[in-house]
Design a binder for these strands. Structure first.
Lengths: 319, 319
DNA sequence: TTGTAAGCGTTATCAG
DNA sequence: CTGATAACGCTTACAA
């Protein structure tokens, strides 16, 4: 492990000169610089970034902390953000939970984007206190250095439901996943809002488990009910797919007998019959936006936040 | 931003005493320690990780670098490894590509596990040179500090195919995804080995694109062929699902007319009709193993590597 | 039990 | 153009 000291000694210059040369400053004579660089290469020298960080008080690392439960959905988000950050010579690490929390508390990153509810607000406040900017997608929080742009799932669902009401459906059901999930709550809220605004005061709440299997089971159960809804909004695509499979099985026609829409725009939805309509959040766009905003702050530029829509409603065959 | 200096001053002790107290050493008087901790809390002190790292030459951070293409499949791997590492007070970050490469080169992590072919061998060699252990799942490489336990996909496929040959199938086809994918090559190799060992010297190579859609299309194409295989091994579940959908559509019975097996044990496979048989790699187990081995090295313990099988063949209805 | 001081590998100021 | 040197915040002999 050679250090700058070794390079300097072997090149017969002072440490500071070596530093200048290695950092490509223009206050060092060409021959000296060449010599130093040659020696550095010879010694297989790589700078100790940790030392540099201590000195400069910057890590040049950005953390993207997303909870794993989001799984594959969120991959595009991270990848897109990463792409932007790397273009600006920042490194990107991602983590969640306990590690993410410590990383923030210990200023291991210069800035962070967060979509992980297991990270407490205090951590976020503390991090912002270090004068490090932080971008939140999972909650609303005010403060210096804190930017919150939570995904408005309720609004999205409301907008879809409004469309469906206008389309003429009348008897609605909401198929929920685990109740303690915040997402479930938000999606249900949007569902309710649309109904309320149109003075529809009856609906069915179906309690699923989030899985294809549970959707399937619920479809079978619904068959024997006398007053079936004509539209079911499922809190996720898995259950919606299960519904479709169940209804198909029982010869109930979708969307004529009953229409269905899911949430997530899961790959598989478009390859079943009938193709599942769904709501897809454009995570790539969100990642891009988060990265741009954060970068503009770190680099003290101005950046006007694009107020564009970041979701798409995919109306296919199921409604 | 308060430092240990601030804490020491305000508590009226020396920096070293403050350090001892903050690190919970037992050479400091209870009252002194209490006082120091109180002040630390009051000043909202958090240690500067970077400074500590520079001093101790350890980051206490472990990198898990997996390429995103693997996506959701690999989540369990990372999560499981993370769980083990965190239990031992290491933080875990994950990344890939360019960032991962730099993180390794710059010794940002004490140890790493790698499943990302975009990280060059030189980087790995360099990292190992720093006397940091590294665990490889994506390639075979020898060297001090380098542990390679590449996933033997060829062996896995061979074992499945042998089973199928014994079961009595005779005319085999391999449905490949993109040819340049290493995984495709490995899976095909296993397929070939099994056939060779049983002196079956004819087979069909079908060229898919990796998607459900392409599998579907190929099924349709196969219908009109006179000499159809009686068993198709698909390099991934997506295409296998497409095959099933295509054959279902055309009234070809699975597995009687044609049997199918996929790879990945993708969630959806078990909820279609007929249920897709598949090979699943136990990524959780791999993550656990990687973490344990690495930890034992970092902590200079002995750890005997478990030589257990890390994949499961799920025979369902499609073969 | 506490304090002094050296040093981790850099950067950057200042003087030469 | 180059070199001494202080400093970043912390840990850890060693001394008191």
């Amino acid at each position: 492990m050679s250090t700058i000291k070794d390079v300097a000694k072997k090149a017969g210059v002072s440490i500071s000169t070596a530093s200048y040369a290695l950092n490509n400053k223009d206050n060092v004579a060409p021959e000296t610089k060449a010599k130093i660089l040659a020696v550095a290469k010879e010694l297989n020298y790589t700078p100790n970034l940790v030392a540099k960080q201590l000195k400069t008080n910057e890590t040049k690392i950005i953390g993207v902390f997303v909870s794993h439960i989001s799984g594959f959905v969120v991959n595009q988000f991270v990848e897109k953000a990463k792409e932007i950050f790397e273009k600006e010579k920042f490194l990107v690490v991602s983590s969640n939970g306990q590690s993410a929390n410590q990383l923030l508390l210990n200023r291991y990153v210069d800035a962070a984007v967060i979509m992980d509810l297991s990270i407490p607000n205090e951590t976020i406040g503390q991090f912002a206190n270090y004068d490090s900017p932080i971008y939140l997608l999972d909650r609303q929080l005010m403060g210096t250095n804190i930017l919150a742009h939570p995904i408005q799932e309720a609004d999205i669902v409301e907008s879809l439901m409004t469309e469906m009401i206008n389309k003429g459906y009348q008897h609605f059901a909401f198929l929920g996943a685990k109740k303690e999930l915040l997402q479930n709550t938000m999606r249900y809220e949007g569902f309710l809002r649309a109904l309320n605004k149109h003075h529809i005061d009856e609906h069915l709440y179906l309690e699923g488990k989030g899985t294809i299997q549970s959707g399937y089971q619920i479809a079978l159960d619904l068959v024997s009910i006398k007053e079936r809804p004509d539209f079911i909004f499922s809190a996720n695509d898995y259950m919606a797919i299960g519904l479709i499979q169940g209804f198909n099985q029982k010869g109930i026609h979708i969307p004529n007998d009953i229409a269905i829409c899911g949430f997530d725009n899961y790959t598989f939805g478009s390859s079943i019959k009938p193709q599942l309509s769904s709501i897809g959040i454009d995570y790539g766009k969100l990642g891009l936006e988060a990265a741009k905003v954060l970068l503009s702050i770190v680099k003290k530029n101005e950046y006007k936040k694009a107020e564009s829509q970041d979701f798409i409603i995919y109306l296919r065959e199921s409604c």
